[in-house]
Nucleic acid binder design. Structure first.
Ligand code: FES
Ligand code: FES
Lengths: 142, 142
DNA sequence: TCATATTCAGAGTTCTTTATCCTAAATTAG
DNA sequence: CTAATTTAGGATAAAGAACTCTGAATATGA
């Protein structure tokens, strides 16, 4: 079981932050990304394709081709990626799965969850991916 | 996509807290639970069966049969249910999906996530399900 | 120019989760 | 004892997520 984000979304987040480390405009192949990040090659291809379709990445075919961010890294947050891949359900839904989540008929943990949800949101938007990428202390990001 | 807990786990949490409202020892049928909580009947049956197997619930067949908590509601927390159904992965895994999550090679949001993860854990253990059930402001719980 | 190697694009497949169905076994009430 | 009710449990179907295979586009260099 994946936690809050789907596997696809996790891979997307890893890949996009990896791209943020590259000089602006430089193309990076699926091969390099898949190898460095340990993500299944073809699956990653489909994910990046999807991110291109949604306007977050730009792609180019052929040798020397690959993917790059469609806009400056400082203008992208992790939230943009989550929004594009998983949607914004986690900002609206009841953590216990009840059909409605509002102050009207709150479940027992509604208040507590509201705070945590805000925390998650702020974790995703408080830094742009250029900063995020630099703060990664992961061997994958070398 | 469900958020942090699987659908199955959400249903389990709703059902167990519902049972916590009943007088200790009283049996409640799948029928009543499914109807009140709006959970698919047969699916809920499997979930409750599983919770019985894991020792959280006790069951009895025949008319007047049903399910009840296997121990006093004050001794059960939401975490017990999550643990039984989804496991404790969320307390250990990297929120960005990296294979390792530790202070050794932290991802960019590791610290922030550590705090949120603790918050989620405390949300699940700070009250027993008797309290949780009483605090539900849900029409389902009547 | 054109063959070839490289890379993305998109359809297709497998696996897991969710949900349904059906029959058997246990238990109660009459 | 019989009929009604309820859980137990296997089998199956539908939906969604995860992953794979094949083909189209493109740059390079012979
Ligand atoms: S109603 Fe449950 S989190 Fe809002
Ligand atoms: S390494 Fe990412 S949350 Fe710990």
């Amino acid at each position: 079981m994946s936690l809050i984000f789907s596997r696809q979304c996790e891979y997307a987040l890893q890949a996009v932050t990896y791209l943020a480390l590259k000089p602006e405009g430089e193309m990076t192949s699926i091969k390099e990304l898949a190898k460095k990040l340990g993500i299944p090659y073809h699956f990653l291809g489909k994910i990046l394709q999807d991110l291109s379709y949604k306007g977050l990445l730009a792609s180019q075919k052929g040798p020397t081709g690959g993917f790059r961010l469609a806009m400056p890294a400082k203008d992208i947050t992790l939230f943009h990626v989550v929004e594009a891949v998983d949607g914004v359900g986690f900002t609206k839904n009841c953590v216990l799965g009840f059909p409605e989540c509002s102050g009207q008929n709150p479940c027992a943990v509604h208040e507590k969850w509201a705070g945590l949800r805000d925390g998650i949101y702020s974790m995703l938007v408080s830094k742009n991916i250029a900063q995020v990428a630099r703060e990664m202390r992961k061997p994958e990001y070398v």
